[in-house]
Design a protein around this nucleic acid. Structure first.
Lengths: 261, 261
DNA sequence: AAGTGGTCTAGACCACCAT
DNA sequence: TGGTGGTCTAGACCACTTC
């Protein structure tokens, strides 16, 4: 192993050879490839550059190229067959393809929709919510909001938080009375950890009478109810959101992907 | 780089040092760790063995350990913090935890439920289904089935396939008139490629009158409708499944996870 | 036989965290 | 300051596909 000159140290060398940008080399590479794919620069049916080719043209090691491809495979933009090569999928051609895959980022963004605060945050006793947040007490911080798309309301959400987090949210006054964004998105900036994911249960229920007028629906008519529990990296619940959606204005879309390992 | 003895060749060496089993070393390692986590062999709050430790005790390189941890992070069993270490999440403690994450395997398994064929496979003209399967013609192969849980029906599904695949499915006679399993699971064994994922739209609708009696529901009552399009690695649609679920017996559960990269 | 992706190694430097 | 995970390298062997 001798180490006369040894591999260039990770990360910093060759900084100026290719588009510098920021971040690790594998990330720059995958971004380059992603752009190329989205712009249809690789023809549909056939093979993309091999690992060795990319390693040479980008001046990185084969492992780094593999690392970049990992991301693309995970996003469903390409698929790889040992012995044959790497190929773009159908999805890679659709510009503005759905990046989601039931990913949590989408819920946080809720692109193109607006929210309106109906009930400012306050501490209330709510046994079931407290239980589902795995709290030792029965008191939770609660708030309510409506969500609008193109000016029309389509969803009503009750949000429950651990009191401590609710306190922090209230004090920050980061949550506007009206605007874009989400509670969990706002909350994350105030949290110690990060939001790692959410468990969700989706059911079809009759629109509750008190909810119906708020989402332009009729009481008793089918509506979509989602119960969503966000948790941090350790698996501790940080938010419970119960939403009712007008079924004529909102449907739940997700993409599943086989775990490839 | 000199190469006097160089790294042991991939895959085959040291075969008998640790539990041999099958497959790559990183897979064996991750399975070991998964078991340990599910059995609660690592105490909740605190740190798991470091990469270097595991590399030594398992006689593998650090990269191989990292590869193993990648899987566990992806499954939400552990989280890692640079500079601190690797820690089990809440989920790792729950035995029989939900592996899913909105993964496609669950839909294929539909654990614990039974199916009953209502309508044997046949070729019919169905413009909309053909369109959604991206077929050049209007003819599709169609079949219908009910799904049971503990003897009671809870879902009705219409399945549409490209004619060629439907033909193969019909000829194979692999689909039982009654039993466990799914169409997509059966189909995959007969396909050239593999099922890579599915796009899904979930809506709340009034139970159609013709569907209601089949799922023990009442016409007009809210029920969950899912439109699911499975696709292969290339992104080509291979199956369209439209299902109606009795909302009192079935709710849609999924786990989302932030993409960690 | 040549080429491709899949796996693996030994060693290195870095940013970050705890001390 | 020492330990941890994150990144990177150069080289190797393998299984598999294609020619």
């Amino acid at each position: 192993m001798r180490s006369v000159r040894k591999g260039a140290p990770g990360g910093k060398v060759r900084r100026s050879e290719h588009r510098r940008q920021t971040g690790p080399a594998h990330q720059r590479l995958s971004e380059d490839l992603r752009s190329a794919l989205e712009e249809g620069r690789f023809k549909m049916g056939e093979q993309m550059p091999t690992e060795v080719e990319l390693a040479e043209t980008y001046g990185v090691s084969r492992q780094t190229v593999r690392r970049a491809f990992q991301d693309l495979v995970g996003e469903g933009l390409v698929y790889r067959v040992a012995g044959r090569g790497t190929f773009p999928t159908n999805f890679s051609q659709q510009r503005h393809y759905v990046r989601s895959i039931g990913a949590i980022e989408d819920l946080q963004a809720f692109a193109g929709t607006e929210m309106e605060l109906l009930q400012r945050i306050e501490l209330i006793p709510e046994e079931e919510a407290a239980l589902r947040l795995e709290l030792p007490t029965k008191v939770v911080a609660a708030l309510a909001l409506r969500r609008f798309y193109e000016g029309a309301p389509f969803g009503l959400t009750h949000v429950y938080l651990p009191p401590e987090l609710g306190q922090r949210l209230a004090e920050s006054e980061a949550l506007p009375a009206k605007g874009v964004g989400t509670v969990i998105g706002t909350l994350e900036k105030l949290m110690p950890g990060t939001v790692a994911g959410a468990n969700q249960v989706i059911t079809a229920v009759p629109t509750p009478a008190e909810v119906a007028p708020l989402i332009d629906g009729e009481a008793g008519e089918p509506c979509l109810r989602t119960d969503r529990t966000y948790f941090d990296t350790e698996g501790t619940p940080v938010e419970l959101a119960i939403s009712f959606y007008n079924s004529e204005r909102y449907s739940y879309r997700l993409q599943m992907r086989r775990r490839t390992t």
